[in-house]
């Protein structure tokens, strides 16, 4: 039998709902925008699908699923989707990340 995924929360015991929201940071908004564009919802090519994105979030290890903030999960998943599609490579990511960091 298929084991129930960690993300499958319906009906599990849980506590009081914190109704305080937070104002989204600009980088969080950009992650959202990037996703919408990559899904091809704004007229451009569909580089990845919503389903791949969801699958990669669901595939996060439980400790990350709990620890990561919403858009932190999204950026991890989008990166994963693009690696799986071969749109970017780990080498390119590493190079670019060093370049960004070196700007200080």
């Amino acid at each position: 039998m298929l084991e129930r995924g960690y993300h499958d929360l319906g009906g599990r015991p849980a506590g009081e709902i914190d109704r305080h929201g937070h104002e989204y940071a600009e980088w969080e908004r950009r992650v959202d925008a990037l996703a919408v564009l990559l899904w091809g919802l704004k007229g451009g090519p569909r580089v990845i699908t919503v389903d791949e994105h969801r699958k990669n979030i669901e595939a996060l290890p439980p400790e990350d699923y709990d620890k990561l903030a919403y858009y932190e999960k999204w950026i991890v998943s989008l990166t994963q989707c693009l690696l799986q599609r071969g749109v970017v490579t780990t080498g390119e990511l590493a190079r670019k990340m060093l370049e960004v960091q070196s700007r200080g």
Partner: peptide, 8 residues
């Protein structure tokens, strides 16, 4: 994660 966003 911000670094990841800029990178990607």
């Amino acid at each position: 994660f911000q670094l990841m966003e800029v990178t990607l």
